[in-house]
Design a protein around this nucleic acid. Structure first.
Lengths: 122, 122
DNA sequence: ACGTATTATTGACAATGTAATAAATAAAGG
DNA sequence: CCTTTATTTATTACATTGTCAATAATACGT
């Protein structure tokens, strides 16, 4: 039965738990400012974090992020270079920025005091 | 009805991408040193990151982390206080520490340059 | 012995991670 | 022209992680 309609959990903004990859995509978009589209985001994540992901991984995540209102997108001006569908550019919404900062802060607190003591003598 | 050949998808260490919660659990265990058992880990995450999770969420993650060799565990000395099963204490393995540092480093690079500019004027 | 408090374990399902594959679109080349 | 090829977005499918509810174990108090 699912007659409920309140239960806003799992709907709007997953209550503050962004996945690691979602965070990376969000951060890449922020870095790219006005040039955040699929391929560029992929490259950014590869260069910065050293994580090579397929382009589809990027897009799927982007779609989900948009569904949750953490990013917005618009189609590019009709000036394609060589072919391909019109580029879709993304921007992080204020809500997205907050979610990002929240995740960062939570992790910072978890790391607090361990910064340089993550060594074990075995 | 089950043509699958016993499914041996038991990978060694999932390519090195820890989930955010897995990281928190790992970090909590590190903080707790010699007192890292279920309830304590739960409390640690709640107090530090402000994330209140059910005890089962903790355990399930712990089990998976152990399957991947990122933590080890042993049962406590038979000196329970009030009742309950013997406590199971966890420690992070060297591999776990490395995975943790890797994740941290990747995120740090993604944040690099945005630390205090996550504000948008729109 | 029985109920209760304390801890661990299992089962089920939602959310996120990731890749293979498809679709769209326009320049290039014969 | 029309077929090929390059560029980019979108969809489908399945694996891994996140999360909680329910259950099992175990020892203390009465």
């Amino acid at each position: 039965m699912n007659t409920s309609k309140s239960v806003d959990r799992g709907k709007v903004v997953g209550q503050g738990s962004l996945g690691e990859f979602e965070q990376m995509v969000l951060l890449a978009v922020l870095h790219l400012e006005d040039d955040a589209y699929g391929a560029a985001i992929q490259r950014e994540i590869d260069e910065r974090a050293g994580r090579r992901r397929t382009i589809s991984a990027i897009y799927v995540t982007l779609v989900r992020l948009q569904d949750k209102g953490l990013v917005e997108s618009r189609l590019a001006d009709p000036t394609p270079v060589r072919g391909g569908k019109a580029k879709r550019f993304f921007t992080v919404t204020p809500v997205g920025v907050v979610a990002l900062e929240d995740s960062r802060q939570a992790m910072d607190r978890m790391w607090e005091g361990l910064e340089s003591s993550t060594r074990r003598a075995d």
